[in-house]
């Protein structure tokens, strides 16, 4: 109970601070309301940023942000601001080397805005649903903005395509890139599963930005055969698949953190052979053992007999044999 009380106090304090800070309006669509969203309005920009521009600015019309018939569609200045200094303070006719004033809202590495301020421009429209938990999420807090992953002025955003999405995520998540190359891995590199099949990068109520509320719930989306409930449950499996598995890649199949019987010995010391020290004899006679090796530690080790390790529905399966 004491934790709930603490939480209430903290919430009240934050809410109070919130009233003090009401004057700070951020960028929540403030500039959006006055912008001309029409094609004609865009011409302020596209007159110069035409097909000859180094950046493929016009490609925005291939994407959803270019469809003017959709009343929600932004104009250039909805996102980039009125940018009067840029529009009106251009080089004079015949002036060589003259520079334009700055655009109000620049996205990306060259922006003068913080990543959070950049994201707020997008969040002016893109709120709710999958983005419900964006604010103060791992990415929001980790200096990641929408444009860190998304490209708007293009037909097909790489991060929205299953085959190319991992390239975008691996820009930061190098460990996962390395793990994806290991012997046992989900078919991410093969383009059959995307990071977003399990994760919601926009924030979630689950751990590690998982789409579902818990890790197991996420795994069961595809591996429903392991959901049970079973007559005989394996506690470690019902609580957390990652007690035994590592999701991004492993040298030990199938995506295991360790090899049986050593893996099992991390939790079990009692049942018969888990008290027996095992070393090179796990490799059997081909690893130098001259005696008959035991099926308790060679091959699948414990799982040579404890076969249905995720749970059993057999009335004779208390020990997960059946």
């Amino acid at each position: 109970m004491k934790h709930w009380k603490k939480l209430l106090i903290v919430c009240a304090a934050i809410a109070g601070l919130g009233q003090l800070g009401a004057a700070y309006a951020g960028n929540d669509g403030a500039m959006a309301s006055s912008a001309d969203r029409s094609l004609k309005g865009d011409q302020v920009c596209t007159e110069c940023h035409d097909e000859n521009d180094n950046k493929a600015v016009l490609a925005v019309y291939k994407g959803k942000h270019g469809v003017k018939a959709d009343g929600r569609t932004p104009g250039c200045q909805t996102c980039h601001g009125a940018s009067e200094a840029h529009v009106k303070n251009g080089p004079k006719k015949g002036e060589v080397g003259g520079k334009r004033g700055a655009v109000d809202v620049v996205f990306g590495a060259k922006s003068t805005l913080s990543t959070r301020e950049q994201s707020e421009v997008c969040a002016g429209c893109h709120k709710g649903d999958k983005r419900t938990h964006w604010t103060a999420s791992q990415h929001d807090s980790g200096d990641v903005s929408c444009v860190s992953c998304h490209t708007n002025h293009t037909h097909q955003d790489k991060v929205l395509k299953k085959a190319t999405q991992p390239q975008v995520c691996y820009t930061c998540h190098k460990e996962q890139r390395a793990e994806g190359r290991k012997m046992s891995h989900h078919p991410v590199a093969e383009g059959k599963i995307a990071c977003s099949d399990c994760h919601n990068p926009h924030g979630s109520a689950g751990p590690k930005l998982l789409k579902k509320n818990t890790l197991n719930e996420t795994c069961f989306t595809c591996h429903a055969e392991k959901r049970g409930p079973f007559l005989w449950e394996h506690q470690a499996a019902t609580e957390d698949c990652s007690n035994c598995h590592t999701p991004h890649g492993s040298n030990i199949s199938p995506l295991l953190k360790s090899r049986a019987p050593f893996l099992c010995t991390e939790c079990h010391d009692g049942p018969h052979n888990s008290k027996v020290p095992v070393a090179a004899n796990a490799g059997g006679t081909q690893a130098g053992l001259t005696a008959v090796p035991s099926e308790n530690y060679t091959g699948r080790g414990c799982m040579n007999c404890h076969s249905v390790i995720h749970g059993s529905n057999h009335p004779a399966g208390a020990l997960l044999h059946r």
Binding site: V276, P277, V278, A279, A280, A282, A287, G288, L289, T290
Partner: peptide
Amino acid sequence: GTLTCGDT
């Protein structure tokens, strides 16, 4: 005949 210690 044993090899219960050492390395795999």
